[in-house]
Design a protein around this nucleic acid. Structure first.
Lengths: 345, 345
DNA sequence: CGCACGATTGCAATCGTTTGCAATTTCGCT
DNA sequence: AGCGAAATTGCAAACGATTGCAATCGTGCG
């Protein structure tokens, strides 16, 4: 493809694009320019200043690709978001997006760039190997295990600089940061029961490992307390959710007096549906959510929920990854959930 | 730094890391391997299959850095989020995050990767040049003009593959995608007035260009209709917002009967504060928001708001950028806002 | 005045892949 | 069997920055 005039190389006759061009102008060798610009090695102060001046004047920036190729490191952290269970749970999902935001803040502060990759495992068998092996990133953060637990485990042995957001399981090999979901589930169930509920339901998909753990925790408490609990499966994408929840609510009308929602997003939708049906929360039905999203304090009634500390999670992910980048084999980090009592239970 | 044993090169004695290694095994030249793997050029089918087999067997992936360096294109789109007016408006802001999510979906679908960069212009004069000149990205999408309108304009002339999310101004040179904020402001004011409000207030920061346009639109309508309107400045970060809004509400108690919030996020917080004060919406005070975030339909009362079509915006950004990448000098895209009438006005 | 040593700088190989051009092989056809 | 065109493959020069090693410059000191 002849792209001779695609680039705006016309404005300045012979623009300084390479370190060699600059060297020619400065009357030194490329090596010296490289040293002067990278700052760390020994260059005569006068020479350095001259080179820096010329660089500034011509708006020169060393080509990162070449630099990275030569130095075999990129300064880029890959962030992969696998969309396993529910492809329609786009990455626009509130929780993930918030986590990503904090992650961006943390990593940027430490001088790393972020390469974002949304991946659909069903369509791309070895997404993780591909990402890692691409040579474009120094390390990878996987946000959410989705249904890819095994694949992640496979990779973990041979590749140190990887940290995963998700659930921790006894004896797993990959380094994970996440909330103690099981404990969170317990807190939720205990609260519902303490508030007087006796016939519980878990509202949400029980397939994803995190949600399964939440359900398991709740179930354990319920059984110990002699209270019934059942799962009402739901998808995550917004449009379906509403209808599914509506249907569930019709089915369980009067049979259930306490709902543990897998997610605040689900809980909020549920709250809305209940209001439409004139079911009073918490008098007739108690609800506890999970996440403590910003919305959750603004609902009517304000949502009682199990808080995940997203900021701390992001910080943990970044910290651990950086230590692994330095060669350390770190332990997983399991964060404690906190029950935030508001008015819905 | 001697990192001889940092890498796990021990597991497989002599791993296939380069195309040359693979070529040696296959008994062909590196060039042939490159052609076979890239798929597009002419290679004997049998040779290709053999090479592919060996590649698969050894889990070989061509080094992207080298490839990108040689081909002078990266397959990466930079997404910059300038945090100008309010550094504490972290990129975890709901609207931007949602836009980013859709953007990720769009670009990924078209085979591009995303390099995310959060940037604080106040701390980094030439963030945009640096990003563009880094050689790491083929094009850039700037999410939000913030207070960087001029800098963006400066760059626009010399650099084609850039598209910006934001407000469109008569005669500007950079390609922008965004909602017609002024029109949106008009719709909001018209609705408030139609609902019976006569003393309006605009709740939000009027500095950012998008918000200024919204306010201007509302003001135009208000003045034409002989209705008063005033601005109540607010910041964007959540913690401050609540208090600021509370203070404003105390000050204006009884003097205002219609609020146009710069953002749904602000509107939602405002709704909550009003509820705490037992001010009935919409009877005593009418509210219209802006954005139509997912939350907005779930509030009590559900929020009347001006909808921005985020998905369409993301698609527009991606489309235009790709056309610019191909050398076309595209026009800006201004999307129409839609008034979504619910119960708050 | 000559030598040695430290401070700078230049040289050239290297990172791993792509690709224009030329050489070689394969085939079809007469 | 022989010739030419078409199909494959090999060769080697890029892409642009980094860095170990060696060469050069300058200066202090005997």
């Amino acid at each position: 493809m002849a792209d001779s005039d695609t680039q705006p190389s016309v404005d300045k006759p012979n623009r300084v694009r390479t370190i060699t061009d600059l060297a020619k102008i400065a009357g030194v060798s490329p090596g010296t320019v490289s040293r002067a610009l990278s700052g760390n090695s020994l260059v005569n102060t006068k020479t350095r200043e001259k080179i820096e001046a010329i660089a500034r004047e011509h708006g020169f920036r060393p080509n990162q690709m070449a630099s990275k190729l030569r130095r075999q490191k990129t300064g880029v952290i890959g962030v992969a978001i696998p969309l396993g269970h529910d492809v329609r749970q786009q990455i626009s999902d509130t929780f993930f997006m918030t986590l990503l935001g904090h992650l961006a803040d943390e990593l940027t502060e430490r001088g790393f760039d972020i390469m974002l990759r949304r991946v659909i495992p069903a369509q791309d068998e070895d997404w993780l190997d591909r990402f890692i092996g691409s040579g474009m990133i120094d390390g990878v953060i996987v946000v959410g295990q989705s249904d890819q637990f095994d694949r992640i485990e496979d990779v973990a042995d041979g590749y140190l600089p990887m940290v995963v957001w998700g659930n921790h399981q006894e004896g797993q090999r990959h380094c994970v940061v996440g909330t103690n979901n099981r404990l969170g589930g317990k807190l939720a169930a205990e609260k519902l029961i303490a508030a007087g509920a006796r016939r519980l339901a878990f509202l949400g998909d029980t397939q994803p490992i995190e949600f399964a753990a939440r359900f398991a925790g709740a179930k354990e408490v319920a059984e110990k307390m002699g209270v019934s609990i059942r799962a009402l499966p739901t998808h995550l994408s917004r449009d379906q959710t509403s209808e599914e929840i509506a249907e569930h609510l019709s089915n369980i009308e009067g049979e259930i007096d306490g709902i543990f929602a897998a997610t605040d997003t689900i809980a909020v939708t549920c709250l809305k549906e209940l209001r439409d049906r004139n079911i009073n929360v918490p008098a007739q039905l108690k609800i506890v959510g999970f996440d403590d999203l910003p919305i959750s304090s603004q609902t009517v009634p304000p949502l009682t929920t199990v808080r995940q500390d997203i900021a701390a999670g992001a910080k943990g992910l970044a910290d651990l990854l950086l230590r692994r980048l330095a060669g350390e084999d770190t332990e997983s980090l399991v964060l404690p959930p906190h029950l935030i009592v508001r008015d819905s239970a």
